[in-house]
Nucleic acid binder design. Sequence first.
DNA 1: CCAAAAGTGTTAGGTGTACACCCATGT
DNA 2: ACATGGGTGTACACCTAACACTTTTGG
Lengths: 230, 230
Amino acid sequence: MGVKQDIRVAVDAVVFGYESKNNLSVLLIKRGIEPFKGEWALPGGLVMNDESLEEAVERELKEETGITIDYLEQLYTFGKPNRDPRNRVVAVTYFVLVKPNHFTIKADTDAADVKWFNLKELPKLAFDHQLVLDTAKERLKSKLSYQPIGFDLLNDEFPFSDLEHLYMTILEKEIDRRNFRKKMLSFGIIEETDKIEKIGSGRPAKLFRFNKVKFQQLTVNNFHFDIKFV
Amino acid sequence: MGVKQDIRVAVDAVVFGYESKNNLSVLLIKRGIEPFKGEWALPGGLVMNDESLEEAVERELKEETGITIDYLEQLYTFGKPNRDPRNRVVAVTYFVLVKPNHFTIKADTDAADVKWFNLKELPKLAFDHQLVLDTAKERLKSKLSYQPIGFDLLNDEFPFSDLEHLYMTILEKEIDRRNFRKKMLSFGIIEETDKIEKIGSGRPAKLFRFNKVKFQQLTVNNFHFDIKFV
DNA sequence: CCAAAAGTGTTAGGTGTACACCCATGT
DNA sequence: ACATGGGTGTACACCTAACACTTTTGG
């Protein structure tokens, strides 16, 4: 049957965070070891023999970055020979969202440094991680329109304008505020709280909350979240 | 750094074919070796050291089934420990479509037998392949609505009713023929040929053809294939 | 002339899109 | 009173969904 298989399995994560108007970021670590020592890369590492792929991602993110995961799904598996200059490595990549609340970062163990980078100000990335990131950006962009994942990038209670700006930032287009609000509210999955947030100038904003339970009930009854713009 | 990693990487393919009204099938092979010897499983096998994942799927499908691939995309990667009773195996699975023209099967090498199974009459599957198949069915169902993949399950020239039946079979719902035809034709990506097919009873049908080039041109100009039904 | 499947139009209701002014607060 | 961002309504165009009869062929 030919030569014994000699391939490693790794997991890598693309972690997105959103802070304010036009500030969509991704979490990177500065590599402490060769290859690509000193360059920036996606958090990740080899899978251990007895853990699942998801457990591996969660472990690596905890070890390397200390963030709390709000949303996680498998992204894509990259397996071309020569992705890694040392051995052949097949990388199962994951797509992760984090709410601003959970941004807290601790740089302990094997990562020399951890940092959020605005997507508009990225450094050169190690390995084929730019390709992975581009794949994740596409996923984020397309999922935003047919799944309520935007709420995993905002705190539990948020002013409506944050949601608007989030959509405009990710989709990279202008959206009519009135139509956006109307459509979003028409789903009946967002509820008004009795709180009000005053920051900076202008009229204070009511805070809203995503009702996940309501969304799941509706989904069972054949409701489809769908919000598109020209 | 603990114990050396001991994980194998395999590829498996879910190959769909469609023949006639309500006849959506998947290609399975009867396993010639342990474990699960004599049971039915998805075609697939271990990845060789110097081939890409896609090359591995293509090689396995050629070796084991002899079909011609019309559409291929990565499906999902299954990596729980204990999927395989012998070693830990991470399986990168692929989603494949085949036109009726390309159904030709040859059972040569390591597969004891190859066979198309109607999705309504499936045997028990080896490993976690039922889960893989279910994932592929979902993918097929959802992609059908926003990508023109249905045409990769029909011959190049097809009567309109085949397309209708294909959609109804996969989506498992009744669709109004008049509205379906109107909407499908309105995209301008299907053209009439001057051929006519007479089979069985009833009025003979014009044959149509999917214009892929036209579709790609439109896609560049921000056209989105989208065909949904209540 | 009957059976079988192909082919075709209209209407009403709902949804998407475009668009502009008033409101509440801090300075 | 002014600057800043929050909050709201309407009208028209377009698309969706519901629905039934005629045409062409073979037996």
